[in-house]
């Protein structure tokens, strides 16, 4: 299949990526090149095949490990916030969300 311009705008909105009007044709064309490639796999009959989410599910135990429900991390708020674009009084600053 190939995408139309309005579908790309919708995907960009979902992905939270701004696309400038002058880029939109190039983006559309390159996405359709990639879709042309991946469409090759759609025709294969895979009925009865179990999807594979983990590469070793047939070889090793890949069950999620559980650990005791105990605190293992220390408070490193200042260290972690030191790399943030904008913080104030220990809070991450973002544009006003609620009017």
């Amino acid at each position: 299949m190939s995408l139309a311009a309005d579908q790309v705008r919708r995907l960009a909105r979902l992905a939270r990526i701004a696309i400038r009007p002058e880029e939109s044709e190039t983006v559309l064309a390159s996405l359709n090149r990639v879709l042309g490639l991946i469409d090759q796999m759609r025709a294969v009959d895979t009925s009865g095949v179990e999807p594979m989410a983990h590469a070793l599910d047939a070889k090793a135990s890949v069950a999620q490990r559980l650990r005791p429900d105990a605190v293992t991390e220390t408070d490193q708020r200042e260290l972690f916030q030191s790399v943030a674009p904008a913080v104030e009084r220990g809070l991450y600053l973002v544009p006003k969300v609620i009017e």
Partner: peptide, 9 residues
């Protein structure tokens, strides 16, 4: 999902 099935093949 189709890609995950082909991954198994």
């Amino acid at each position: 999902l189709q890609a995950q099935k082909l991954r198994r093949l």
